[in-house]
Design a protein around this nucleic acid. Structure first.
Lengths: 240, 240
DNA sequence: AGCTACATACATTCACGTATGGATGTAAAT
DNA sequence: ATTTACATCCATACGTGAATGTATGTAGCT
């Protein structure tokens, strides 16, 4: 028996002919039935609503456990609207990545260009502190971090993760090699080892903060720990 | 049309006589057809094979993207065997958690009991270093860490994560409070803040190591960074 | 013989993708 | 200014497969 049903409470259904009437003859309330296509701006609006809804649901339940129906409902539309704006679930993920992580990555890339090479450690501390406080205030970035950190496994997201981290790693490596040449680093650690410790520090801070459900103040305590750690990386332990 | 048939002889099945042959008349190779139930030990053996296969697949592709069919095939059995040993997919996850994280957690709990309270920082460095080298050599622990860190979102796994981290947090808090009373900590940071920095350090090291695909030597470099960091947390920066 | 330890077949659900249609905006034609 | 024609935006309905869960058969230990 495939069909069966016949008695399913589908809700939504509407046995009565709604479309012939309506439109004009039923000003029963301020509610417009379900008008589609108002203008071009409205279309972009629903696209954004879909992205917003997907971001929330992905961050809360994970990508795999989020269905297109849930996304559409949360956005106030149906799957029809979803499929008009996006090819499939991965397309939404790409769009979310584009509008969040990618520009953020470009910003890192740009900042590293005009870095202060006379005191790389100070530059790292300064921009790192700023990044932490921005991140702490930006719910959107936090959600994307959650999504991406739990979305590994698939080819595409893994590549994104790798890309972002490799980029960050290169920046650290470049700045710390410079600091090493300038004799600013402690001689207990090589520049590459210091870079590892900073990667651990940054990603660790973000992960722990989110995992602990914001159990500590990321901006103030993060800056404090970052300052302490970077100070300890300077030659003679910053005791000068 | 879906309905169709209706005239099919339901159940009863077995049109073709597949089973009569084999069994005895075909010693064509050393392959035994598909013998089931050899002895009690064999049953436990297949149960372990299933757990093993699930652990590998979960760690590689994530839990949601791993199907029971894949697990069964990788274990050399069918889904029938799976459903005999486990209720569903979450039951395997529970079993994996029990045999890996839980005992490891108990070990932490026990170690914290007999901690050297005269020099908590030295104790933390010592046991932390040992933990890192053990973790670096234990593929099983690494897989479980990957699985758990990407399996958040669901109620159960999130609770497990919380449990383990809260436990670790309590140990850190207790030991560092003691160190603070003994005047061993730098006065730049409170004991709780130091605890946060150590949580960040530990989890950050494990996450970065796995994420970077073992790009650095966790045991040696981890010990080095841990030593450097803990030294920097001592009063007067360990410069005594 | 009965229970154990599976394999195999069957039923069902559920999310996905697609096909379709309808309503409205928009531009061209009259 | 209407009317016409068409593209856009979206809802609805349908088909499909893949994964799950269950029912049943069955060989072998004990």
């Amino acid at each position: 028996m495939c069909v069966s049903q016949t008695a399913m409470p589908v809700l939504t259904m509407k046995v009565c002919p709604v479309h012939p009437i309506g439109r004009r003859g039923t000003p029963q309330a301020g509610r417009e039935e379900h008008s589609v296509r108002r203008c071009k701006a409205d279309a972009e609006q629903t696209r954004l609503k879909i992205l917003e809804a997907a971001e929330m649901l992905f961050a809360e339940h994970g990508i795999a456990r989020t269905t297109l129906e849930q996304i559409a409902r949360a956005a106030g539309v149906t799957r029809g609207a979803f499929y008009w704006h996006f090819k499939d679930k991965t397309a939404v993920l790409s769009a979310l990545y584009e509008r969040s992580t990618a520009p953020q990555l470009a910003l890192i890339r740009e900042a590293s260009e005009q870095a202060d090479l006379t005191d790389p450690l100070a530059f790292l501390e300064c921009s790192g502190t700023r990044f932490l406080s921005v991140f702490a205030a930006d719910k959107c970035q936090q959600r994307m971090h959650r999504i991406m950190s739990n979305a590994a496994m698939t080819e595409e997201t893994a590549a994104w993760l790798a890309e972002a981290n490799v980029e960050l790693w290169r920046v650290f490596q470049r700045l710390l090699a410079r600091a090493g040449e300038a004799g600013q680093l402690t001689d207990e650690l090589t520049p590459d080892e210091v870079a590892v410790s900073l990667m651990v520090m940054f990603n660790g801070l973000l992960n722990e903060w989110l995992r602990s459900d914001r159990a500590f103040p990321l901006d103030t305590l993060g800056a404090k720990l970052l300052h302490h750690h970077i100070t300890s990386l300077r030659r003679n332990g910053g005791a000068a």
